[in-house]
């Protein structure tokens, strides 16, 4: 395994991780909500993309749109069910409910798409480029480009625009925000719809790299958590850097140490961060 190939892998993987995690970053940062069904939305959206291409014969870009729409619908349904818990800020119950949704989504995926592993082939995965003696597919490049554009857009909207201010106000003090005339319900619905859409977009782009099974999604949640914590909870720019760093770390660890234990290693990184920098988790207490 040569170093350049692993570095390129790591950069692609890093952008994939950042894209997978961004929904959670926004969810946690602007609404103080969590979603343990994150990985299962990823799984379901990957299946929707595959089904749109393989069964409906839609072109890949349209299939991405279908997957994102599915993600929005799932996000809205979840938030509708949890609205009372959201207003009560009952984070413990929200966690358990989202786990329940995750389990339901697995059942739905098995029922609708069957239990067989599927491979999503996109026109982009056939195009390959040679970079410094290593190979990259157009699919990999698409992940990198979309991730960068998505993060730039989000950074401008959330950290520079008035929309971000509104959302942050809701996160800080939902009751005060309501007094100020903000429709808090709409903000919660919008944020959860964004969470669903973002992870669905990530799935539509990243899933062609691996086989699609009903039991994928767990590693995605762990990766997401590591990215969110490393990047500083709720920070868009931090998430991007953390995702990139984790991707390179995982690729190098997988390439030179052991691919099977790459997630374990990522978890150990998380432990080290938690022990060395518990202040980065101040949100965990403040969200109560």
């Amino acid at each position: 395994m040569n170093l350049v190939q692993q570095l390129i892998n790591g950069i692609v993987l890093g952008h994939a991780y950042a894209l997978i995690a961004i929904g959670w970053t926004v969810l946690l940062g602007v609404a103080r909500l969590v979603n343990f069904g994150h990985g299962q939305i990823y799984m379901l959206a990957a299946f929707v993309t595959w089904w749109s291409v393989a069964a409906l014969g839609l072109p890949y870009p349209v299939a991405i749109g279908v997957a994102v729409a599915a993600g929005v619908v799932i996000g809205l349904i979840m938030q509708a069910a949890m609205l009372r818990l959201t207003f009560a800020q009952d984070l413990v119950s929200i966690m358990i409910v989202t786990l329940g949704f995750g389990h339901m989504m697995r059942g739905v995926a098995g029922l609708v798409f069957g239990g067989n592993p599927q491979v999503l082939e996109t026109p982009l995965s056939w195009v390959e480029f040679e970079v410094a003696g290593s190979w990259v597919t157009a699919q990999d490049l698409a992940i990198v480009v979309v991730a960068i554009l998505f993060f730039l857009l989000l950074y401008l909207v959330l950290e520079r625009g008035s929309l971000g201010r509104t959302a942050r106000m809701v996160a800080e003090d939902p009751k005060l925000a309501q007094l100020a005339g903000i429709d808090v319900r709409r903000v919660y619905f919008a944020v959860f719809a964004f969470e669903g859409a973002a992870v669905a977009l990530a799935a539509a782009l990243v899933a062609p790299r691996t086989p699609i099974l009903t039991n994928i999604g767990f590693e995605e949640v762990i990766i997401t958590f590591v990215v969110v914590v490393l990047g500083g909870i709720g920070s868009v720019a931090g998430s991007y850097l953390a995702g990139l760093g984790l991707g390179i770390f995982t690729a190098l660890f997988g390439g030179f140490v052991s691919p099977a234990y790459a997630t374990t290693a990522a978890f150990l990184v998380l432990i080290v961060v938690l022990v060395l920098r518990p202040s980065g988790l101040a949100m965990g207490r403040a969200s109560r």
């Binding site: 786990l99 389990h103 339901m104 697995r106 059942g107």
Partner: peptide
């Protein structure tokens, strides 16, 4: 059954 179990939890 998975949908029922997850649904029961929700």
């Amino acid at each position: 059954n998975a949908i029922i179990l997850g649904g029961a939890l929700v």
